[in-house]
């Protein structure tokens, strides 16, 4: 197989085990990979062999790690995660950029946090009514924004933990505010709402910070009372958390 192209299944199949085990390199590897991409038989064979290679890892010797191993891992998770940043879609406005104090929401709880969120919701309504660039109107307190009706609910994770809050604020358009403070670090997530008619709509998409935080205002194209629940979903469709509204 030195001077001839390895383009027959017989020749390629001799290399599939090595490819499955991840030890094929260089030109040999690219020839086999290219063939497999275009040959259903060899691809099916490779999948079987990959299953064997995977199973092999399960019979590798086991050993007890040094004491405290899991705590050292957790410590590194807490302190050393790189931040992944992503672009913000236009329809989801990061509130934190507008209100500096919001960056301290993470540890806030109880009435303090609720007040902050209500202020944020009012701001959102103000922004919605008056357009972008009305940050200063928060202090002057236009009458309509502060009369906004607000529905809020906790964002509850699959394991039952509270990882944030969702608010619906009336206005035109109505706004959904999603505050996440314990989400997947640096992940891109979608915000979906379920409507009274059972439809699920993705209303916004954004990236959480390296510490899993983010607060977002999303204008809704549906009426406030049509929204029954909101949820946070990963790019592969896993529901991370829900809020019943």
């Amino acid at each position: 197989m030195t001077n001839h192209e390895m383009d027959t299944c017989a020749e390629v199949s001799a290399e599939l085990a090595e490819l499955a085990l991840g030890v094929l390199t260089g030109r040999e590897r690219s020839i086999v990979v290219e063939h497999v991409e275009n040959c259903d038989d060899c691809r099916a064979e490779l999948e079987h062999l990959t299953g064997v290679a995977d199973a092999l890892l399960m019979v590798a010797p086991q050993a007890e790690p040094p004491l405290g191993f899991e705590l050292r891992v957790a410590e590194r998770v807490r302190t050393g995660l790189p931040t992944v940043t992503g672009r913000q879609p236009s329809e989801a406005t990061p509130i934190r950029r507008r209100i500096g104090a919001a960056s301290r929401w993470r540890k806030a709880s109880g009435p303090q946090r609720r007040n902050t969120l209500l202020a944020a919701a009012a701001l959102v309504v103000a922004l919605a009514l008056g357009g972008v660039g009305l940050v200063n109107s928060l202090g002057s307190g236009g009458t309509r924004p502060l009369q906004a009706s607000v529905i809020s609910a906790q964002l509850t994770s699959a394991s039952g933990g509270n990882i944030g809050e969702v608010l619906l604020a009336s206005g035109s358009p109505p706004m959904l505010v999603m505050e996440v403070n314990g989400g997947p670090w640096g992940q891109r997530v979608d915000c979906q709402v379920q409507l009274a008619n059972g439809h699920v709509m993705t209303v916004g998409s954004f990236s959480l910070s390296g510490s899993g935080e983010g607060t977002w205002a999303i204008p809704l194209k549906v009426g406030l009372h049509e929204v029954q629940s909101a949820r946070l979903v990963t790019s592969n469709g896993t529901v991370l958390a829900k809020a019943a509204l």
Binding site: Q62, A63, F69, A158, S159, G161, G183, P184, T238
Partner: peptide, 27 residues
């Protein structure tokens, strides 16, 4: 899923579940 949400308890449980395999393979 819980780890993705920053649930450290779940993370520790996950590590304890697989640490013998992972460390053993690395070793």
């Amino acid at each position: 899923a819980a780890m993705a949400l920053g649930d450290e308890t779940a993370g520790l449980a996950f590590v304890r579940r697989y640490q013998r395999r992972v460390y053993g393979l690395a070793l």
